[in-house]
């Protein structure tokens, strides 16, 4: 077994939770540091793994006023960090029905839903804010141009944490604009998978019923035999 290096002594770091100082061991994330400080988190914690966006956090350092952004569960604490979680930020979503959003030549559905996006003056705060490092301002420009495919592509990894909206001086909500764009793209613009639609129809018509009934009635020994005899398709 590979040998463990000699254990190092743990450093204790100073952090400031909403201005209040605590000493916590190095190596914790912002989220686990809060718990080390004694907080039992209710808001601001979901997946604990960087997928849900519940733990949006802003921070800076006692010696450096520049505001920075992170997911609390994915950011390791540093000496003299000052942290505040933003578990919720108010935003109003546009009203729509995906069934009525078919993109048409010469129309810009995203601007119709979110006319305010035309007031974007390109300050790029949203991009600087994004804890997923997405090109937020770029997808907002694509939205203004009506390039739904580009918005969907660039925004795909968005966790909807809300930090971009919290920082936009124009009160825009890039994450909601992107969500609408992706739904439009998925529903109307992505090419259809004919093989799937064929299969749905075959199942409706009962094509596999006899075979399935037979398998359901088969003895365990018979099932095991068939299972072992399955032809395995090579990974692609």
């Amino acid at each position: 077994m590979a040998e463990v290096a000699e254990k190092e002594k743990v450093q204790m770091l100073d952090i400031y939770v909403m201005g209040k100082r605590y000493k916590v061991p190095e190596g914790l994330t912002i989220q686990t540091a809060l718990e080390y400080c004694g907080y039992h988190i209710i808001r601001g914690c979901g997946c604990r793994a960087g997928f849900c966006g519940a733990c949006g956090t802003i921070y800076n350092f006692t010696y450096d006023p520049t505001i920075r952004y992170a997911l609390g569960c994915q950011k390791e604490i540093e000496q003299n960090m000052v942290i505040t979680q933003i578990p919720f930020f108010p935003a109003t979503e546009a009203l729509y029905n995906v069934e009525d959003l078919e993109p048409k030549e010469g129309e810009n559905k995203l601007v119709e839903l979110y006319p305010d996006i035309l007031t974007c003056f390109g300050c790029n705060n949203c991009t600087k804010t994004c804890p997923q490092d997405l090109e937020v301002m770029e997808f907002m420009s694509a939205a203004i141009r009506g390039d739904i495919k580009r918005v969907a592509e660039l925004s795909f990894d968005c966790l909807i944490c809300g930090l971009c909206a919290a920082r936009c001086p124009q009160g825009l909500q890039p994450y909601n604009v992107a969500l609408a764009a992706r739904r439009i793209y998925g529903h109307y613009m992505a090419p259809k998978s004919q093989h799937n639609l064929n299969r749905v129809k075959e199942i409706e018509e009962g094509k596999f019923n006899v075979e399935l009934e037979e398998l359901k009635k088969a003895s365990e020994a018979e099932l095991r035999k068939r299972y072992a005899a399955r032809e395995i398709e090579p990974a692609k």
């Binding site: 254990k7 190092e8 002594k9 743990v10 061991p25 190095e26 190596g27 914790l28 994330t29 686990t32 718990e35 080390y36 604990r48």
Partner: peptide, 8 residues
């Protein structure tokens, strides 16, 4: 705290 075993 899960996900964290302190060093040393």
């Amino acid at each position: 705290v899960p996900g964290f075993v302190p060093l040393g």
